[in-house]
Nucleic acid binder design. Sequence first.
DNA 1: CCGATGCTAAGGGCGCGGCCGAAGTGTCAC
DNA 2: GTGACACTTCGGCCGCGCCCTTAGCATCGG
Lengths: 232, 232
Amino acid sequence: MLTIVAIAETAALLGEPARAAMFSALMDGRALTAAELAATAGVTPQTASGHLGRLIEAGLLVVEKQGRHRYHRLASPAVARMVESIMQVAGAAPRQARPPRVGPADAALRAARTCYDHLAGRLGVGIADALVARGHVELGADGGAVTPTGEAFLASFGIAARLDGARRGRPFCRPCLDWSERRPHLAGVLGASLCVRCLELGWLRRRPGTRALEITHEGRRGFGERFGVDAG
Amino acid sequence: MLTIVAIAETAALLGEPARAAMFSALMDGRALTAAELAATAGVTPQTASGHLGRLIEAGLLVVEKQGRHRYHRLASPAVARMVESIMQVAGAAPRQARPPRVGPADAALRAARTCYDHLAGRLGVGIADALVARGHVELGADGGAVTPTGEAFLASFGIAARLDGARRGRPFCRPCLDWSERRPHLAGVLGASLCVRCLELGWLRRRPGTRALEITHEGRRGFGERFGVDAG
DNA sequence: CCGATGCTAAGGGCGCGGCCGAAGTGTCAC
DNA sequence: GTGACACTTCGGCCGCGCCCTTAGCATCGG
């Protein structure tokens, strides 16, 4: 099997704390510079450069040149799913009884953040729970689906247009285990559409330099009224 | 982030050719002995023992003692999904224009095999294609769903009983990229149920010592009549 | 033109970990 | 019991690769 070495090489690219930290930082779906990634990984820029070169060579990352900056991001949703699945196994395995201490910096992340292209944190899990509780979405371990009433609800929320490309009932919903809440939130096309729409409505704002999302005043009201989610 | 090291450690466990080969061998969902895994990995038993100990310690594998044999298998479907996602990325990345040579031993594997708990190979992809073409199943990149006509078809095929635990329309279908065909086949509860049912009906038989599946005479007829799949 | 900034390329130290040989424990057969 | 078999543990060799320092290119500002 020649493919065995390809599997091992791919996995080994994630099997190093410095590179794993870079992937974790890139899991918000945005593009970061080599210097930013070096800082989050805790290595010098030239070491980070070597890592990034290998990751680009392997096709896990893509780079976009802008002036003297080079922005790196995950090459595809498939890479994001791979990292997700590894995080899920890594989080489930250890016998860490009590969750690691919650630093003040983590507080914002745990409240609301992006996970590649969709919402995560308490807000993401809360929205998923609300949609399931109201019968708009059904979630299992292996997939998710939007019900007819859910389609109507989503249309009224303004994201029907994005789903027109897919036929009615077409699967576009996927569960994604939240690393801080240890419960699933919504990923896939539906999750991405919800995230974009909330940003569009001004309910959420990206915080520069972090993957945390700020819930605006309108957002607090909107999430409560439309989803029954307490985003306090 | 303390979790970074956990991610790196988990990924590193797969980032070694010997261990990657073991995972690949275990992806058929069955339990193998340490000696068998050592042989497929191309290392001595004592080296394999060390690897297996680490994998068990990390919770990726579970072991079952039977006499003087110790049978190892993947610890959970989550681990299988992780390996799947890595294989998908590893297979998509390289610029291997022509597929690796097809040995005679590989021929049976490419025709029909198990992938953890469901069907793969030409047969697995063929069944997925047939179900999609007939409107019984809808497949996207992020998930799949069974249509009402599909539910009726599956009930007539004798796997409705297994799905009773889940409500009607509940998601239980998931795409899984086939490494030999480079196209999706059916995974998740649906894929597993189809596999079990085909074995039950005597359409397929496991070949001892390999993950290849033998298509019986009844199977050849059955797949053609019920699915419109040429399993020749 | 100059320096500063962002990143890349080469060279050496060094520690982690895979691998094997040899020896030890448990299990089955006779 | 004795031997064979499956597997694990221990000790030591050795090489891969991570990291840093030093040096070399591009790009922007003045």
